[in-house]
């Protein structure tokens, strides 16, 4: 049992569950999993103060590989799940993980509302363009006209741009990572967890089994003589809204993020696209329910001793 005098430090190993991992060899998910574990150890958040919550699919198995409170919930329902867990205990570090179909397809309605609420949450989306666990159908992020080897016909729908969607829904931190660049992904996830507000990290993830289009070698290709993948923080791009009260600045920062996310050259920018620090949902809630300023909801003993007599008196 942990006490205040403990000086235990947590290594990435402390976040690893002792269980066989059944992802395909070479799966991009491994990179995301280890990045989450390393980020948590960098932040020294105790495993028991952390909850990892997933939807359904290959990404859905992530919590099983974490030595934290771990919830493998329903397809598309990551956002309602992490929202409520955070409301129950705002001292927990709550990380949602899900696939692109989970977040932008079946869970799209929840994804929208999650951005509007802006609780202090981290949502990591494993984006591989396919529904892998059901053997490779098209996901909402696959481009129009594309066909992976697992699809019988090419897609005739426009893809969702996760960065644009995140910006439109009000996510206050929008980043894009690459599963096979774990060093950089650790950095992005660390920033996302530190961010006060709901942070979206869309992670480009290779699926060696079903997505033959966007493979490790494709991501490693040159476009017009330059690396397809590049890092925003190695350019003069500034994602931060410096004055949250400046509506024009917010619009400008969102606009530049949109432009970056749809680069006509085909190059893909990794890094933080957008960051805005504003009061969170919990901040507003604490103004309404002042007891939450001292303790999280789960620790409020007084709610089990409520006196409803004043309510009844009003009915007399």
């Amino acid at each position: 049992m942990g006490t205040a005098t403990d000086i235990k430090t947590f290594s990435p190993q402390d976040y690893k569950a002792d269980i066989h991992n059944d992802w395909c060899p070479g799966c991009g998910d491994f990179g995301i999993l280890s990045s989450i574990q390393i980020a948590l150890s960098k932040l020294q958040i105790p495993p028991y103060r952390t909850a990892v919550v997933s939807g359904i699919g290959c990404s859905g198995k992530t919590p099983h590989y974490m030595n934290t409170y771990a919830f493998h919930t329903l397809h598309g329902r990551v956002m309602p799940s992490i929202t409520a867990l955070k409301l129950a205990n705002h001292d927990l570090t709550v990380i949602g993980v899900g696939g692109d179909g989970d977040a932008y397809g079946i869970g799209a309605g929840h994804f929208v509302s999650g951005g509007r609420r802006n609780l202090d949450l981290t949502y990591i989306v494993f984006n591989n363009d396919v529904y892998a666990l059901t053997k490779g159908q098209a996901s909402p992020t696959i481009a129009k006209g594309q066909k992976t080897k697992s699809m019988s016909e090419e897609s005739i729908m426009e893809p969702i741009n996760p960065v644009l969607l995140g910006l439109a829904c009000g996510y206050t931190f929008v980043a894009r990572g690459y599963a096979l660049d774990t060093k950089y992904l650790v950095e992005l996830i660390t920033q996302a967890i530190r961010h006060r507000g709901t942070a979206l990290v869309d992670v480009l993830q290779t699926c060696p089994t079903y997505n033959d289009l966007h493979s490790k070698s494709w991501y490693g290709e040159k476009v017009d003589g330059e690396d397809r993948l590049y890092k925003l923080d190695q350019t003069d791009y500034d994602p931060v809204v410096h004055d949250p009260n400046d509506v024009a600045e917010i619009t400008q920062k969102k606009a530049q993020a949109l432009l970056k996310s749809q680069d006509p050259t085909g190059r893909i920018a990794l890094g933080v696209y957008y960051k805005l620090e504003v009061p969170t949902y919990e901040d507003f809630l604490k103004e309404k329910i002042t007891a939450l300023q001292a303790k999280p909801l789960v620790e409020l003993e007084e709610i089990y001793h409520r006196d409803i007599t004043p309510n009844l008196s009003k009915m007399m």
């Binding site: 409520a84 129950a88 205990n89």
Partner: peptide, 11 residues
């Protein structure tokens, strides 16, 4: 779903 997870959260 939120109500289910709040219950898991101890509330």
């Amino acid at each position: 779903d939120a109500a289910v997870m709040a219950a898991h959260g101890g509330v």
